[in-house]
Simulated assay, not measured.
Amino acid sequence: MADDIFLVTGAAGFVGNALVHHLKSEGIRVRAMVRTEAQAEALRPIVDEVVIADLEAPETLAPAVAGVAGVYHIAAVFRVAAIPEETFRAINADGVRHMIDAAVAAGVPRFIHCSTNGVHSDIDHPPAAEDYPFKPTDIYQVTKLEGEQIAMEAYREGRIGGVALRPTMVYGPGDQRTLKMFRLIAQGRFFYVGKGEALTHWVDVRDVARAFHLAMEATHLNAEAFLIGGKRYMTLAENAVEIAAQLGVSEPSLRLPVGPMMALAHATEIVCKPFGIEPPLFRRRVAFFIKNRAYDISKSRRMLGYEPRQDFAGEVRDIIAAYRASGDLPEPRPAHRAA
Rank of each mutant, 00 (worst) to 15 (best):
Phe275Gly: 10
Ala287Cys: 09
Ile243Asn: 08
Ser25Ile: 06
Ala64Thr: 05
Met303Ile: 08
Arg44Met: 05
Glu278Cys: 09
Glu49Asp: 15
Ala53Tyr: 07
Trp202Leu: 15
Ala240Cys: 13
Ala62Val: 12
Tyr323Thr: 02
Gln141His: 11
Leu247Lys: 01
Asp311Trp: 04
Gly248Arg: 10
Ile91Asp: 00
Asn292Ala: 11
Ala240Ser: 12
Ala66Ile: 01
Leu184Phe: 08
Gly67Glu: 04
Val208Ile: 12
Gly10Tyr: 01
Glu197Asn: 13
Glu49Gln: 15
Asn17Glu: 11
Thr137Arg: 14
Asp122Cys: 08
Gly118Lys: 02
Val77Glu: 10
Asp311Glu: 14
Ile277Ser: 06
Phe191Asp: 07
Gly27Met: 07
Ala245Ile: 03
Ser326Gly: 02
Thr168Lys: 09
Ala38Leu: 09
Pro167Trp: 09
Asn17Cys: 07
Met261His: 03
Arg324His: 10
Met262Gly: 01
Lys231Met: 13
Ala106Tyr: 02
Lys180Asn: 11
Ala215Ile: 03
Ala218Asn: 08
Arg166Trp: 04
Val20Asp: 08
His73Ile: 00
Asp4Leu: 08
Glu269Trp: 09
Ala218Val: 02
Ala75Asn: 04
Ala225Phe: 05
Ile46Thr: 13
Met99Asp: 06
His120Trp: 10
Ala245Lys: 15
Leu227Trp: 00
Ala287Glu: 15
Pro308Trp: 00
Ala128Arg: 07
Gly196Glu: 10
Val96Thr: 15
Thr137Gly: 07
Asp207Glu: 12
Glu153Val: 03
Ala338Val: 12
Gln39Cys: 04
Phe275Thr: 09
Lys144Pro: 03
Ile290Pro: 05
Ala335Met: 13
Ala325Asn: 09
Phe111Ala: 02
Ala53Ile: 06
Glu224Cys: 06
Ala218Asp: 06
Pro279Ser: 11
Ala66Thr: 15
Ala265Lys: 06
Ser298His: 14
Ile74Trp: 02
Asp328Gln: 15
Val316Gly: 04
Arg79Phe: 13
Ile91Leu: 05
Ala106Thr: 04
Pro45Tyr: 05
Val249Met: 09
Glu146Cys: 06
Leu43Met: 03
Pro126Arg: 09
His21Ile: 02
Tyr233Met: 03
Lys299Gln: 15
Ala151Trp: 00
His266Val: 06
Leu7Lys: 05
Asp122Met: 11
Ala64Trp: 03
Asp3Thr: 15
Ala151Gln: 00
Val271Thr: 12
Ala82Ile: 04
Leu19Ala: 03
Arg283His: 07
Met1Gln: 10
Glu157Val: 04
Thr200Met: 14
Asp311Ser: 06
Lys144Val: 04
